[in-house]
Structure formats: C-alpha cells, structure tokens
C-alpha cells in the first residue's frame, strides 16, 4: 500500500508557482540581472530534476491517492459460485439470502440480486452451468 498523501510534490509545486505568477512589465536593468541569475537557476533546476528522478518512490507515495472503497469479500475463481459446486444457480443467491436473513449485514440485497441475475443469464449458452 502506498503512503497516503494527496498533494503535489513540493519541488513541482514551487516550479508551478513560479510558472503561474502573473506577468508584469519588468524594467530592463532588472531583466538583465535576472538573466545573469538564470544560469544559476538552470543549474539548480537541473539538480532539482535529478533529485526528482531519484525520488520517484517519494513522488509516487506523495502524489495522490489511495484506495478506499473496500467492501467485503475477495473473489474466488468465480465469485458468484457461493456454494463452490462449480455452477452459479439460484441456490447460491438463496444461500446468501439465508445468511442475510440470519443477521449477516455484510450481505446486501444488491449482492443477492447480482448472484441471482448471474444464475439466469443466457447469452452465450452457458446458462447456469457456470
């Protein structure tokens, strides 16, 4: 699991800040001074890029996201074959429905419907043999 951080990496943010600053008219003397500093800045940026490349792992962990949404079960080879008899039939949906009726709140009616619809699926001729 990656480290959970939902932010852009700081070096990148700094560059973007720089890039996004609104343009203003700059006096020529300041402009030339900036130009002199530019080489140094480029060198720094090179080092920064090198740093970025070398810290891919950090960036990977930093840049966003993780995964939530984790509801219940892990699929077997066929997640609708509740009875593990090699087929999906109404018996599988019925098994889930009985568990739900017995108080297993982790099983939703949608899940039962899903298995039942898998049982009656026609399509490719496999029907309920899966």
């Amino acid at each position: 699991m990656a480290k959970e951080r939902d932010n852009l990496p700081d070096p990148l943010l700094a560059r973007l800040r720089q890039a996004g600053t609104p343009q203003r008219s700059i006096p020529a003397e300041i402009d030339s001074a900036i130009l002199q500093d530019a080489h140094a800045a480029i060198a720094r940026r090179r080092r920064m890029r090198l740093f970025l490349r070398s810290s891919v792992g950090l960036a990977a962990a930093a840049c966003v996201l993780l995964v939530v949404g984790l509801w219940s079960f892990m699929p077997g080879r066929n997640s609708n074959d509740i009875n593990h008899d090699g087929r999906t039939t109404i018996a599988d949906a019925f098994t889930l429905a009985r568990k739900r009726a017995a108080g297993d709140n982790t099983i939703t009616q949608e899940r039962i419907d899903q298995v039942a619809y898998a049982a009656v699926h026609l399509d490719d001729g496999r029907g309920a043999t899966r």
Binding site: L12, A19, A61, C63, L65, L70, S72
Partner: peptide
C-alpha cells in the same frame, strides 16, 4: 495516473490494496 499541470508533466501512483473488491452490484 499521468497528466500535465501547465507544461509540467506529472505522475501519480495509486497502490491498490490486496483486498479491494466490493460487492456493489
């Protein structure tokens, strides 16, 4: 996930947990 912010290229890595399956029908 890759993309761009302005002219800067960007990569996001999102690890998927081992047990990430939902039963949402």
């Amino acid at each position: 996930v890759s993309g761009k912010v302005g002219n800067e290229k960007l990569h996001f890595d999102m690890a998927l947990a081992e047990n990430n399956t939902s039963a949402d029908a």
